[in-house]
Structures are given as structure tokens and as C-alpha cells.
Design a protein around this nucleic acid. Structure first.
Length: 1085
DNA sequence: ATCCTCCCCTAC
DNA sequence: TAAGGTAGGGGAGGAT
């Protein structure tokens, strides 16, 4: 993006030089850098042409074809960096064969970029400039000369870290059928034969390419790099074929098995692996625009992790029915043992082996890949394989090292799902207290079958499972969950184990502590360091010591478990507390846009998971894995390697499942990390504070805005006060027949009602999965009493919101505002001195003169034209451009590191009573730049708290280091800016970014546009967020302003006019200031 | 004390 | 080459 490189010239400067070919360079080389560059380019080109004619004459080559044009006619290359052969030689080739060679890159003239090496950093720059031009190896030129014809270029595209990749379906496994065709591919991709023009054309016209989404185009671009197009198509076809084979299961698997059984090392020789390697196909976020979706489709852990949700849906009727039956007293039962833990044996393998009984006694494992050199993980190994030392989690190469004869099968998730269903159907048939632990493991509480022999019962169930699923299960029988689970470990495989209460202690004596559920590596290591290994040893440690070393809960657990004590109950269905999605494999980003794209997709995924569960969430947590400084390359292919984890959460004013809102929030949080996106190795999004989705779909869109306005910040005393003082008039008007009104504020009302409910009920009052009642609906709607509204906040709200609120308050709001206005008259003069406050003040004022609520809505329209004009006037881009020339050093000054102090300074500033010299006292540093984050705090128009806040981060030094942040409210920032304008003038105080933001913000809120209010409100967020994202990248600030405007204009009609008017002048300024090196004209395609 | 956030740990 | 997810629980430490 940054275009400080002198090796580029914009189309704009070319145009200028064309219209005025005699641009005087002598005027001053740097007074008009763009013209200078244009002139230089022109000279170089004529020099080149002169050389060309001489050269071809001298060499005497007759490379021009019959029509007199050389093979490179129409080709104009730009050689980037060091090449073999050298750029001089390449230039010579071009000269002799009718082509051209540009010394400086120009999108309008260059047709091909030639490059030998392309480190990622360079690729980033080049891609920004090239805008889709092919980036080719020098051999394209050389080979074309040798062939005496222009060879098609796709097979010469420069491979870099992003390579083509269609979703491949476990290609290594089903190779037998495909060996011949894959060989073809290999031959094809190895050969230097050109691409046939037809397939190229076909590719160009493919629907994907036609899509007008820039992102898709970009992704496609990447796919094209590194592999000939026809090759890609063929491979895709083959992979598709492979996937068909995969799903048709048995026959191909049979083939697979046969081949595998014949050759000890049969898999390693399957050519497709080699082929794919040759063409460097791999899978990551770099190459697959649908990476998130495809990834989850193939992830075993995702399958395991999401299985519970599917189970819930499938068995939901059964689960509800069982609810009422719980809590049967077990004290009267004949058998004290009342818990059965049942677990399928090596589930993933067993399911596959249903169709291959002959392999039951052979070592078999399930894994994504069968490459004996690979780092694919063994997911499950059968017992014969375990005897060789093969275990889950091992890399396949290590497993093969232990057991060269290991037969490896790919996953078959559909089959697992099917068998799991059979398994649970059987369990539910025999017992109605079933706690599902995973797809292959459950607890049964059989205390109510007091006369049944648990061991008999268990073997009946196991027998039925085996008959139905052809897979064996093992069972542990004991008096509690802990002991039952431990018993199962001893029962495996295909057995059962009963631990009567009198044998518990001896059973545990020598049991390693790490065998206890809940004790993993970390706690195990810690215990080990204290020379504690067995449960018997642990029993000697006092509870107090355990509390001290491990905390109360874990201490208790250790103390209880090593004695076989466990008072947990079988829980049929647990309440869902969070829903999320994360990817920590294949995550690689080159730039912010990649990352943004990924976050968007992940947000969509999370949004749809929320929707599937019928819940909405308030808190969003973004987890990022970032490569640890100095970490080596991950051992695992495309793995995340050694990472540090970063996480931050944000709580929205109202629960949501809206993808767009989640996207925005996620990106906002991500931006706040301010990390280099190329270091990101994993991203996760988790939603918590779940609520059952209300039925009011219309209210959904309004939620953000309404809650922003209406949510009281504090629950408690404040609320009691509100209840007592509740304005009955308001209540009446809302509960009466005014449908529109009753519907519109429902978001606010629900929120308010929810607060009432929350206060009364305990925090776990919402049982998401079991409770079907909707707490919002039954609660009586209520608004905070008008007398408690903070008028200073209200009056800064957009007029339509005020109007809407006024309606809700039956016209009372305007009365109150008028009253407030009179009180504040003296202060009002101050506000009227700034352009937008004039605009705003006028509107508010004129509205307050009309006190009737019923007619207030029409106020949105009469002032439309005038209002917009005035708004436009506010955006003084010239001012912004001028600021660019001032240094940032004296932008802002704070006296201490305390944000509250900074805040009070800001307030003083906005009130106009801050002494500048006082500010300067004890100032530690100046700030290099100002970044703006938005952060929606708990809004509270009722109390003194501020309704909406911006968090401002200050950065200092070079490279910029975060030094301070503080928050200011929306209204405050407007007032502040007004003051700053009046006092110091525009060009002194703020960075262009903040300036632009401040200029545009009231424009959006204040303009009377066709856009629905909430859209405009969202735009504000978009604006802020975009700044946040962009501020991380290395674009010039001025260019950033341009990008910002452009982006906004593409989103909303509010901005399109701004765009049309302001952009041309901005472009001109950019060209002038940057010697025309920014590619502005081409960027709106 | 109690809650919240940011982690880490654990299990499947 | 390969698909290192998901969700709950708990501790530390800070805010209230």
C-alpha cells in the first residue's frame, strides 16, 4: 500500500504528461514530483525504443514474424528485483522481439511482471500495484524466445507461499483408481507446455471471476499464482472424482485395503501425493476463500466438539421427557452401585472396521493422511495397533515407525454419527437417565432400577450395542461417576468392570493420580514435583495443603477423588453457557484484508451456530494465537507452532446473533490487539452471556440503537428508584393500542424488563436449553421516567432518535427539553459557533418549538437539502490535507498516565476553561499519533454516565508505542472539537484521521438521509472500525483518508456525495504530495 | 464479599 | 504435507 518506492509512477501523472507533453522538468525536479516522474519515464521509453531498433539491426536476428511484429509485440514487461537472467538480458530479449521493457512500474503500460524471487513482503507490495497482472518467472521470456513464439504464461507464474488449492478430499487414500490420471497431471504440471487458450478463456469467464467482490477476485488471483490454469482445472476435477470415491465408501476402500495389504509401503508410493507435492498444493487461509467452512468439514475435533449439539437436537424430545423423572431417591435400592459408565472401544476405528472384519486383529488407525513422512495426527488406533505403541495424537510418521504394517483409514464422519445414534437409541431404550459425554461415551444412572443386577444390566446393553452397531463397548459399574469411569479403563477392551464400594480404596491405592478425571498434565506435573504419584500417596496430604497449592475447588477435587468420593449427579442435559468457533490450523495472513476476511467468515460461522441453537449472546471473546517471538517453524505442517495466546472480550449492550454485528465487534477487538497479522496462527471467537432468542425478529435490528439509548447502566438501587417513580402516563401509552410504538421500543423495553428479572432471579435463572419460556415477553413494558433522563445527553442525540423517544414519552420529552434549553441558553451560544453545531442546534431548536409529539417525525424531511449542504461544508478536506504538513509532535498533551485525569482534562477542554500552560506542566511526552477506538460502555442516558464513549489511544515515538488511552463521550467529543476549532484552529490539533472522523461523525448522524437511522448509526461504527483496522497497516495517513472515504461511499449513499465532491480534490492533492505514486484512479474498479 | 476479565487446564 | 475444536471449570487479580 505504501508507495514510497521510487520505482513506481501513477497513471495520473502519465495523463498529466500526455495532456501537457512539455511539462518543464527544469522548473524544479521536486516541486512537482509527479510530472518529474512522468517526464523521466517518457525519456526512458524513447531511449528504450532507440535501443530496440539499434539492437535488432545489430544482431541481425529475424525474429519478427510475417506481419512484421516480434513475438513480444504488445508485451511490456517490468522486471522486479534481481533476476536470472539479468534484467539487462531480459531487456535485450524484449528489444529484439518486438516487446518493451518498463523501468518503472505502471499499471497502464506494463503487461507482465517478471520476477525471480518473491518474498512475502515484496509480494504484498507487488500485489497492491499489479492489480492482477501476471507475475512470471524470467524463463517465460527465455523459453518464448527459444520457441520463437509467445508461450502462454500461466505455467510460468511465480510460485510463492500461497498456492492454488481446491478443497481436496483425502487424496492420498483412494489413489488406486486414480494413479493413471494423476500421473497425467504430474506430466502436465512438469512440462512447460503452454496452456491452451480455450481453457484460459474459460477460466477467465468463470462465474467466480465474474463476481464483483474484490475479495473473491483477490483470492482467485492467488489461486492462479503457482500453477497453470489447465492444470488446476484438471486437478480439481480429479479431486472431485476422489471425493466421489471417498463417499462411495466400500468398493474403493476395498481397493485401498487390497493395495495396502499387498505392499508394505504401498501408500508412500501413491503418486498423487507426489503429484500434489510437485504442484505445491496446500491448504491454508491463504489459498481458500472458504477456508473456515471447509476446515470444519474435515476437522475431527470439530466433529467431536459439536457432536453434543447434534445429539441434543436429535434426542431433544427424549431429553425433555426425562427432565421430570430426575431425582429419584436411590437410598432404597437393593444395589448400592447405581452408575454405569459405558464407552465404545476405539470408536473411530471400530466404526470403519464394521465393513472389514478381517482386519479386526490387524493394527488399524484412523488419520487424515497416510503419508508415512507426514505430520497428520492419528485420531484413533485399535488395540492391535496400540500393542505396537501406536496411540491417538501421534504423527502418522511416528506411528508408521512403530508399526510399519499399520493400516490407516480416513475419517468417515457420517458413519460415526450413525453409530452414535444407534448407541444412544439403545441407551435411552434401557434407561431414562442418560448423560451424554461424547459421541461414544455416556453415564447411566440406574438407581431407580433398584432390583436389577447392574452387571447383568450392563452386559445386556453391551450385547445389544454390539449386535446393532457391530462395534464393541466396555462398561464400568460403581457407586458414583468417578469410580464408574475409572472402572471402564480397566474393563477395556470389550469388557466390563464392577467396583463395589468396599474395594474402592484398594483400587485407588496404586492408581496414578493422573488417571483421575480432571487431572491432566499440568496438575500431574505439579504433583509429581512434590513426589506424589499415586492416589494412595495423595491421601496423606491434608486438605489445607491441597487448597494452598491448587486452590479451593481443585484442592477439594483432589482430596475427594483420591478417596473415591464424588457427589456429582448424572445430569441429563447441561445448560449451554457459551458457543464459539476457532481455527488454529492453516491460519496464515499476508495482510489486514486477509485477516478481516477470515474474521468475517468466522463471525458468520458463530452467528449461524447461535441461530441454530436459538440463542443470542452479549459477550464476544476473541482469541488469537500469535507466533511466539523466536519460535521455530511448527513441527506440524500448517500448525500453529509455539504461540502466545491473546484474548479479550467485549460485552454488547444487548444480546445478538447477528453476523454483521459480531463481525464488527470481532474486528474491533482484533484491531485493539495491534499485532502483526502475519504472526497470527489461530483465531477463535466465543460468545457467552447467552439468552434465549426472543420471537420479535423485527426488534432485532433495532436492538443496537435502542439499547444504546435506553439500557440503564446499573441494576439495583437505581432500578428500585425507577420502579417507584415510574411514569404511569408512559406506561399507559405503551400498553394501549398504538401498535407501532409498542413494537418499536420493544428492544429497550425488553432490556429494561430483563433487568427487572435479573435483579429478582438468580444469575442462573436462564436455562438456555431446558427453559422454553421467554422472560421478555411476559414482563410488562416500561420506560425510565422522563424526569430521570439526562438532557445534556439527550439533546446531542440525532433528531430522529429524539423524536422517536418523544413519541415514546407521549410528547413529554420535548417539553422537558424546551425547559432544559431555556436553562442552558447561555451555554448554547458557544455551541452555535461551530459549523455542525449550528446545524444540529438549529434542528433541535426548531423541534423544541413544536412541542407536539405526533407531528415531530416530519421534521426529518423539510431541512433535508439545506442540512446536507451544511454538513458537506463541515468536511473541510483542504483543512485535513493541510494538517498533513504539520508535525504531530504538539498534537495533544496530557499531564499524567491516569486516564481519569486525562478525561477530566478533556472535559475541561470542552468546557473551554482549561489553561493551556497548565496542561503543559509535567508533561512527559508528546504524542506521535492518535488512534481512535470506539468502546460502547454501558450506556446510561438516565444517569450522569455518558451514553456513548470513544476510547482514544495515544501512541508515541518511532516505532509508535502505546502510551495512554482515555475515553470521551460522543457528545463530549463534539463539544471538544468545537472548542478546539474555535480556539486553536483546525490545523494545529488533531491528526488527519481523528479530524476526518470528527468531521464525518456528526455528518452521518446529523444528515437527513434516506438511510434508516440504524444503518447510519452502523456507519458510524464502520467508520471508526475502519480507521482502527487501517491504522494498523502501513498506509500513509492521507491515503488512508482516501481509502476511508472510498469505502464509506461504496457502503452508503450518505457518503456517495461526499465521495464525488471531495475525492477528486483529495486525489489531486495526493498526487501532488506523493509525486503521483499512489494508484488512486485505478482503485475503484 | 462478589463480580468480571483474562487467562489456563481438562476432556472428549 | 493436512484439517491442533469445543465447552466447562477454575484461579489470579482487579474493580466495585
Amino acid at each position: 500500500m505504501r508507495s514510497s518506492s521510487p520505482s513506481s509512477a501513477s497513471g495520473r501523472s502519465t495523463k498529466r504528461s500526455k495532456s501537457n507533453p512539455k511539462t518543464p522538468v527544469q522548473r524544479s525536479p521536486f516541486a512537482d514530483f509527479g510530472s518529474y516522474m512522468a517526464e523521466k519515464n517518457r525519456k526512458l521509453r524513447s531511449q528504450f525504443q532507440a535501443e530496440a531498433s539499434t539492437s535488432s539491426l545489430l544482431s541481425g536476428e529475424t525474429s519478427f514474424s510475417g506481419d512484421g511484429k516480434g513475438i513480444f509485440h504488445g508485451v511490456s514487461i517490468f522486471v522486479d528485483g534481481h533476476t536470472v537472467p539479468s534484467s539487462q538480458e531480459l531487456k535485450g530479449h524484449m528489444l529484439r522481439h518486438g516487446g518493451r521493457c518498463e523501468n518503472y512500474f505502471s499499471r497502464s503500460r506494463v503487461t507482465h511482471i517478471i520476477c525471480s524471487n518473491l518474498p512475502d513482503s515484496k509480494m504484498r507490495n507487488l500485489r497492491a500495484f499489479s492489480r492482477g497482472l501476471p507475475v512470471l518467472k524470467p524463463s517465460w521470456v527465455v523459453d518464448s524466445v527459444a520457441a520463437n513464439k509467445l508461450l502462454s504464461w500461466p505455467s510460468y507464474e511465480l510460485a510463492h507461499s500461497s498456492k492454488i488449492c481446491k478443497q481436496q478430499k483425502l487424496p492420498a487414500f483412494f489413489g488406486c483408481k486414480r494413479i493413471s490420471s494423476l500421473k497425467d497431471v504430474e506430466v502436465l504440471s512438469d512440462s512447460n507446455e503452454g496452456t491452451d487458450p480455450e481453457s484460459l478463456e474459460k477460466f477467465k469467464n468463470s462465474p467466480l471471476l465474474q463476481e464483483d467482490k474484490a475479495l473473491d477476485r483477490r483470492m482467485l488471483q492467488r489461486k492462479r499464482i503457482g500453477l497453470g490454469l489447465d492444470t488446476e482445472e484438471k486437478i480439481t476435477g480429479l479431486l472431485d472424482e476422489g471425493s466421489k470415491i471417498e463417499t462411495s465408501d466400500s468398493s474403493s476402500l476395498q481397493l485401498f485395503i487390497q493395495s495396502n495389504c499387498h505392499a508394505a509401503d504401498g501408500f508412500g508410493e501413491l503418486t498423487n501425493t507426489k503429484c500434489l507435492h510437485t504442484s505445491d498444493v496446500h491448504h491454508s487461509t491463504l489459498t481458500d476463500p472458504n477456508f473456515v467452512e471447509n476446515y470444519f468439514k474435515h476437522s475431527r475435533l470439530h466433529f467431536i466438539g459439536t457432536w453434543r449439539n447434534r445429539y441434543r437436537k436429535r434426542f431433544c424430545n427424549m431429553l425433555k421427557g426425562e427432565c421430570s423423572k430426575s431425582n429419584v431417591d436411590s437410598s432404597t435400592s437393593t444395589y448400592k452401585t447405581s452408575i454405569i459408565h459405558i464407552d465404545m472401544d476405539s470408536f473411530f476405528v471400530s466404526v470403519i472396521l464394521r465393513k472389514y472384519p478381517e482386519l479386526l486383529d490387524k493394527p488399524v488407525a484412523v488419520c487424515h493422511s497416510n503419508n508415512s513422512k507426514g505430520t497428520a495426527e492419528i485420531s484413533s488406533a485399535n488395540y492391535p495397533a496400540r500393542n505396537y505403541g501406536v496411540s491417538a495424537g501421534m504423527f502418522v510418521r511416528d506411528a508408521k515407525a512403530c508399526c510399519p504394517n499399520l493400516v490407516v483409514f480416513p475419517y468417515n464422519f457420517e458413519a460415526y454419527e450413525e453409530v452414535a445414534d444407534q448407541f444412544y437409541s439403545i441407551l435411552h431404550k434401557h434407561c431414562n437417565k442418560v448423560q451424554a459425554l461424547s459421541c461414544d461415551e455416556a453415564f447411566l444412572d440406574i438407581s431407580e432400577f433398584s432390583d436389577l443386577d447392574p452387571e447383568n444390566f450392563s452386559s445386556v446393553i453391551r450385547k445389544e450395542i454390539e449386535e446393532t452397531t457391530q462395534c464393541t463397548a466396555s462398561a464400568g459399574i460403581a457407586g458414583n461417576l468417578l469410580m464408574a469411569r475409572l472402572a471402564t479403563k480397566f474393563a477395556k477392551p470389550n469388557g466390563q468392570c464392577y467396583i463395589p464400594s468396599e474395594k474402592v480404596e484398594s483400587f485407588l491405592d496404586d492408581l496414578p493420580i493422573t488417571a483421575l478425571p480432571g487431572i491432566g498434565r499440568a496438575i500431574g506435573d505439579k504433583l509429581e514435583s512434590k513426589q506424589l504419584r499415586t492416589c494412595g500417596q495423595l491421601r496423606l496430604i491434608s486438605k489445607k495443603t491441597l487448597h494452598k497449592d491448587f486452590g479451593a475447588k481443585i484442592g477439594d477435587m483432589l482430596w475427594n477423588y483420591c478417596r473415591g468420593i464424588d457427589d456429582r449427579k448424572v445430569e441429563i442435559l447441561k445448560e449451554t453457557k457459551s458457543i464459539g468457533a476457532e481455527v488454529n490450523w492453516g491460519v496464515r495472513f499476508l495482510n489486514t484484508m486477509d485477516c478481516e476476511h477470515f474474521l468475517n467468515n468466522l463471525s458468520k460461522e458463530v452467528s449461524s451456530r447461535l441461530q441454530e441453537c436459538g440463542v443470542v449472546a452479549r459477550t464476544i471473546n476473541l482469541k488469537v494465537k500469535r507466533r511466539r517471538a523466536g519460535a521455530k517453524d511448527p513441527l506440524k505442517f500448517m500448525g500453529c507452532g509455539d504461540c502466545e495466546n491473546i484474548s479479550r472480550s467485549m460485552t454488547l449492550p444487548v444480546a445478538t446473533d447477528d453476523a454483521t454485528l459480531i463481525q464488527r465487534t470481532a474486528k474491533k477487538i482484533f484491531a485493539s490487539y495491534r499485532i502483526d497479522v502475519t504472526e497470527v496462527r489461530g483465531v477463535g471467537l466465543q460468545m457467552s452471556k447467552l439468552e434465549v432468542m426472543g420471537t420479535n425478529k423485527q426488534g432485532h435490528k433495532h436492538n443496537i440503537l435502542e439499547s444504546w439509548l435506553m439500557v440503564p447502566a446499573k441494576v439495583g438501587e437505581e432500578l428500585v428508584r425507577l420502579e417507584n417513580q415510574m411514569d404511569t402516563t408512559v406506561e399507559e401509552s405503551l400498553s394501549s393500542g398504538e401498535d407501532q410504538l409498542a413494537v418499536q421500543p420493544s428492544g429497550q423495553l425488553r432490556e429494561y424488563s430483563q433487568l427487572c428479572i435479573d435483579r429478582e432471579a438468580s444469575s442462573n435463572s436462564l436455562h438456555v436449553n431446558l427453559c422454553n419460556s421467554r422472560p421478555y415477553q411476559n414482563a410488562s413494558p416500561a420506560l425510565p421516567p422522563v424526569c430521570l433522563l439526562d438532557m445534556s445527553v439527550i439533546k446531542d442525540l440525532p433528531v430522529d432518535i429524539i423524536s422517536e423517544m418523544n413519541d415514546a414519552y407521549n410528547g413529554k420529552l420535548y417539553d422537558l427539553m424546551r425547559k432544559h434549553d431555556e436553562d442552558q441558553k447561555s451555554h448554547a451560544d458557544l455551541l452555535l459557533t461551530t459549523p455542525w453545531e449550528i446545524h444540529k442546534g438549529k434542528e433541535v431548536k426548531s423541534e423544541t418549538t413544536k412541542s407536539s409529539g405526533s407531528t415531530s417525525r416530519e421534521l426529518n424531511h423539510p431541512e433535508k437539502a439545506e442540512g446536507f449542504e451544511m454538513s458537506l461544508h463541515q468536511v473541510k478536506l483542504q483543512d485535513i490535507l493541510q494538517i498533513k504538513s504539520t508535525t504531530c509532535a504538539d498534537q495533544m498533551v496530557l499531564t499524567s498516565g491516569s486516564s481519569s485525569k486525562a478525561f477530566s482534562i478533556m472535559q475541561n477542554l470542552s468546557n473551554g476553561n482549561l489553561d493551556k500552560s497548565a496542561l503543559a506542566q509535567g508533561v512527559p511526552s508528546h504524542f506521535a499519533s492518535v488512534a481512535v477506538d470506539t468502546h460502547r460502555n454501558k450506556p446510561n442516558p438516565i444517569g450522569p454516565a455518558l451514553s456513548d464513549t470513544f476510547k482514544i489511544n495515544l501512541w508515541s515515538g518511532s516505532p509508535p508505542k502505546w502510551v495512554e488511552n482515555f475515553e470521551v463521550s460522543n457528545s463530549l467529543i463534539l463539544n471538544l472539537t468545537a472548542q478546539l476549532y474555535a480556539k486553536y484552529g483546525v490545523d494545529k490539533l488533531l491528526s488527519p484521521i481523528l479530524q476526518l472522523l470528527i468531521s464525518l461523525y456528526p455528518l452521518i448522524l446529523g444528515s437527513s438521509s434516506e438511510e434508516p437511522l440504524e444503518v447510519r448509526f452502523d456507519l458510524c461504527e464502520l467508520l471508526l472500525q475502519y480507521i482502527e483496522l487501517k491504522i494498523d497497516s502501513d498506509v500513509e495517513e492521507l491515503y488512508l483518508c482516501y481509502l476511508l472515504l472510498e469505502r464509506l461511499a461504496s457502503v452508503s449513499t450518505v457518503f456517495s456525495e461526499v465521495h464525488n465532491i471531495v475525492l477528486p480534490s483529495l486525489q489531486a492533492s495526493v498526487s501532488e504530495n506523493y509525486g503521483g505514486t499512489l494508484q488512486l484512479t485505478g482503485s475503484r474498479d
